[in-house]
Design a binder for these strands. Sequence first.
DNA 1: GATCCTTATGCCCAATATGACATAAATACT
DNA 2: AGTATTTATGTCATATTGGGCATAAGGATC
Lengths: 108, 108
Amino acid sequence: MRADKRERLEAAGWRVGSAEEFLGLSPQEADYVQVKLALSLALRERRLQSELTQADLARLVQSSQSRIAKMEAGDPGVSVDLLMKSLLALGASPRDLARAIDSVPRRD
Amino acid sequence: MRADKRERLEAAGWRVGSAEEFLGLSPQEADYVQVKLALSLALRERRLQSELTQADLARLVQSSQSRIAKMEAGDPGVSVDLLMKSLLALGASPRDLARAIDSVPRRD
DNA sequence: GATCCTTATGCCCAATATGACATAAATACT
DNA sequence: AGTATTTATGTCATATTGGGCATAAGGATC
């Protein structure tokens, strides 16, 4: 965001900042969310790459379409365990998981 | 294991193979276990590096000493989520998590 | 706009993970 | 050897996550 735009917004009474600030997350909590998000995105990418529907993937990992949708949406009620297991079921290697997690932007 | 030893063992009726084979794990399940194990080890290393007892860490992450012990032991009843959250609480970055996971030996 | 396919969202309740506690086992220190 | 500290293991109630189902919402094709 450009500095002048930020100034205009703040002058108008808006609070400008990251989602973490807004939600009041600690740095660790923010990192955790980011990791889950990265795995979510990796899952969606892999599924589409494999040309599977969410229902297909659900069958593959013995879950349900709704769970897959929630996983890909980064729903808070989905565990990293399930994300990882699903990714592995799609043929991802531990190294692939590592790469996905490593794509999380560094904090400053 | 040396080939001749393996032969002697098998001649004597032993089945020789990896722990995964023995436990009847699929490759994906084996990878998942390996990832958890890698995080367990990383946790122990970091905790010791920080010169904290399990009880100290338990306070830090609002858990209990017994949970920490189970985490570090790679207990099946411990989630990757908890492992990650604990590592992050010890100051690990997402990149550190990625490195730990990437240390899992490749399957062949 | 009707039909089909896919994805999103909300709700059950069964299964699993959780912190807490007790206590055993291991390790360190004198 | 005895004691203190740390770690391991078992159990329990409570909380969270799980699959399954219904249904809404989006998107494509006709």
